[in-house]
Amino acid sequence: MSSATLKTQRIEPLPLAGAEQEALREVWGQTLVELAADFPDLVVLDGDLANSTRADIFAAAVPDRFFEMGIAEQNMVGVAAGMATLGFVPWLSTFAAFMANRATDQVRIVVAQPHLNVKMCGGYTGILTGKTGKTHQSVEDIAIFRAMPGVVTLAPADGVELRSAMRAMMETPGPMYLRVTRDPSPVIFPTDYRFQIGPGVLLREGADIGLIGTGVETVRVLEAADMLAREGVAASVLHLPTLKPIDGDAIVALAERTGRIVTAEDHSIIGGLGGAVAEILGERRPTPMRRVGLRDVYGESAPNDYLLEAYGISAGHVVAEARALIERT
C-alpha cells in the first residue's frame, strides 16, 4: 500500500480522439456486483440515492447484501462501523458532499480514529454534477479526507482505473474514500492497466513542463498536453489517482525533470491536489507552480461545458496556466 514500496507506473494512454465514453458511476455499480462474487463480506449501505449513485445495479443483483439506510448519512456511517467490527466490508453510497461534509464527525470518530475497514464513496464529485448546483457539488472532499489521519483518498480518472481501484480497495483493509464522477468521460487507460494504491502514473513525458492531474480532470490535462504539443511545448503528464498516500517521489522527480509544475483538479485548489503538491515541493524541491481548480469559490447550477469555463478548470485553462508559467520562468 505504501508508495515507498511501489514505483510510479509509466502507462501510454489511449488516444483521446474517438475515445470510448464511460460514466464512472455506472462502472462503480457494476463493479460492486463483480466484487460481491469474490468477497462474501462486501455489503452496500445506501443513503436513499441508489438510482443516482448507481448502487441500484448492486441492489438488483445482490439484494441480500444491500441495506437501505434512508436519508441519514450520519447513522449510515455508524452502522457501517458496527458492521465492520464483525468483518463486513461496507461500501457507502451517497454524494461526495454528504459523505465528506454531512457525516464528517461520524467518519472521524467511528471510522478514521479506530481505522475501520469502511469504503466511503462519494458520487457526484466536483462541480460537473448534472446541473445540481452548489449544494450537491463537492469542492472540499479531497481536502477533508486527506486531512483525516490514516484515510486513503482516491480519485480515478476513468472506468478502467476505477474498476481496478475498487478491487485494490477490497484487497487492502482500512478506511478509504473514493471519488466517483457522475457523467460519461473518455476511457484513457488500456484494459490491462492495474491500479496500485499510492503510486502515480506517468502518462506523457516531456521536458518543458510537468502537468499533474487527478480524477477525471486528468483527461483534460492530457487534452492540454496535446494542445501544448501543437505549440511546440513538450509536457509531461503525471496522473495522481491516490491523493493519500501521495506519490511524493513522482512529484519531486517531475519537478526535477521539468522545473515547472501545473496542477489541475475538479476541486478547490486549497487542500486538494494543488495544495498537496505544493506541500511536497515546498518541503522537498521548491519549484515554480500554478494551480488549476476552484479558487476559493462554490459552484452553481449550469451545464458542464459552462462550468468548466466559468470556474477555470477546462483544458484551455491548463494550457493558459502552463504558458504563463513558461513565460515567467
Binding site: Q74, N75, V79, A81, G82, M83, I109, V110
Partner: peptide, 27 residues
Amino acid sequence: LEMSTGSLGQGLSPGAGMALGAKVRGE
C-alpha cells in the same frame, strides 16, 4: 471495548450495525 465513542450521539448507530450484522449472519 467494542466501539470508540466520545463525540456524543454516535454510539447507537454502530450498535444498530452490529445488531444488523448479527441478523445477516444468523448470530
